[in-house]
């Protein structure tokens, strides 16, 4: 894993992106690392644009904001258009293909995965944030899956803990299948 690593979740208000950022930060804390979690949001109480960012470092974090995300997830078309193109070559850009259908030009490595659809299949769209976390963590290897599970269970209401845990796993599986198919594509081309 890159150290320090910068992670960005972007999308719309109500998708639980800030919670996702908090959970990732808490998982990293469980592993003894320093974290800063920041966010920007519009003036709307609901449904505006939303962005949560996390910096994780084994050292001190002076500048608290993400300047160039190593990993990012875009969960709305607006977020994808705004953030995906501006990214460092080689960085990871995950697009939630349930919400983002446009072609996006970026120098990052793109993974298109049906994150929100996976949450719907699990029975509750609300856990799309946990699916996204599972995806990102599996692709970037930021923390151990166990730390992520611990952080989720500690943060969400008890009756949703199991659902969220499953969402993390589903996210990780989505990521693995994507990585495999990308590998297969690379081999065939």
């Amino acid at each position: 894993m890159k150290d320090p690593i910068q992670v960005r979740f972007s999308g719309a208000g109500g998708q639980g992106l800030i919670t996702a950022g908090i959970i990732l930060a808490e998982a990293a804390m469980l592993e003894g690392r320093n974290v800063v979690q920041t966010q920007t949001y519009g003036p709307e109480a609901r449904l505006g644009s939303s962005r949560a960012e996390v910096i994780i470092s084994s050292g001190q974090i002076a500048y608290p904001e993400v300047t160039s995300p190593d990993v990012q997830v875009c969960m709305s078309p607006e977020a994808a258009r705004k953030y995906a193109p501006k990214t460092a070559p080689g960085s990871l850009v995950v697009l939630d293909s349930t919400c983002v259908r446009d072609e996006i030009t970026t120098t990052g490595r793109v993974a298109r995965l049906p994150i929100t659809q996976a949450a719907v299949d699990l029975g509750n769209k609300v856990v799309a944030n946990a699916v996204a976390l599972g995806v990102v963590n599996a692709l970037a290897g930021i923390v151990s899956h166990e730390s992520l599970v611990k952080a989720v269970v500690a943060r969400v209401p008890r009756k949703y803990a199991e659902l969220n845990e499953r969402a993390l796993t589903v996210g990780a599986e989505l990521a693995t299948s994507a990585a495999e198919s990308a590998g297969a594509q690379a081999a065939s081309s």
Binding site: A25, N34, V35, V36, Q37, T38, I61
Partner: peptide, 9 residues
């Protein structure tokens, strides 16, 4: 606003 809303360990 920044220090008010940021989270740190």
């Amino acid at each position: 606003e920044m220090v008010a809303h940021m989270r740190e360990n």
